[in-house]
Every structure is written in C-alpha cells, then in structure tokens.
C-alpha cells in the first residue's frame, strides 16, 4: 500500500450527535438518582432495592448504561484517533473497546434483571 495521507471517511456527524444526545440522557438519570438519594435520607437497603424492582427503573437504568457505553465509545475512539497513530494499534484499541462495551452491556442486563 502506498504511504499517502487519506481522509474523507464521510462519517463523524452521527457519532458527534450521539455523544451529545447520550449526555443529555445521562444528565436526566443522574438528576433523578440525586433527587431520590436526597429525598430518602437516611437511605435503607430495602428502599434502594424496591426502587430497582420497578420494571421502568430497570429500563431507565439500562437506557442510562447504554448511553454511557455509546458515549464512552465515541470518547475512547476520539482519544485513539488523537494519540494512537499506528493504524494496527488503533484498530486493536478500538476492537478491544467494542468488545469490552458489549460485555458490559450483557453484564448490565444480567445485574439489572438478576436482582431478586
């Protein structure tokens, strides 16, 4: 392969927009959790557990975690693009990040719905 500088991948907007939208989702969830903690002082484990027994809370938590992972994906890839200039190494970093995030997603579902 010739060693030429190539650009023009024609993507980036979707990821940039996704990072902003997921940030807003995380803000709302964080505000809700903060409000819950402030209004349930002193907090007992039973209250905390019963909150997560609600299906809507599990879905909201999953939405928050998915937002976190998508947000992290864009952020980590940005860091790799900025600092990891060796193409094979950058691919490795990106693939490992994707695999980790997919694992975290499965793990999140297991934790949220494994609760008894």
């Amino acid at each position: 392969m010739v060693n030429r500088i190539v650009t023009g991948a024609h993507y980036g907007l979707r990821d940039w927009l996704m990072q902003r939208v997921t940030a807003i989702v995380m803000v709302f969830y964080t505000l809700f959790i903060a409000a819950f903690l402030l209004t349930h002082q002193p907090l007992h484990f039973d209250e905390w557990k019963s909150l997560f027994h609600n299906q809507w809370m599990r879905f909201a938590s999953l939405l928050f975690l998915l937002s976190l992972y998508l947000h992290a994906w864009v952020g980590i890839r940005d860091i790799a693009m900025d600092y990891v200039h060796h193409t094979a190494l950058r691919l490795a970093v990106e693939v490992l990040t994707i695999l980790a995030l997919i694992t975290y997603t499965a793990w999140s579902v297991q934790i949220l719905w494994g609760l008894q």
Binding site: H10, G12, L13, D15, W16, D82
Partner: peptide, 14 residues
C-alpha cells in the same frame, strides 16, 4: 459540507 464530513477533517475539534 461533504468535504468536511469526516472524523478527522472536522470532528477532531473538541
């Protein structure tokens, strides 16, 4: 806009 819609050309700006 096509020319700039690229992860490197435009979206390196943080």
């Amino acid at each position: 806009l096509d020319n700039l819609e690229d992860p490197y050309r435009l979206f390196r700006c943080h």
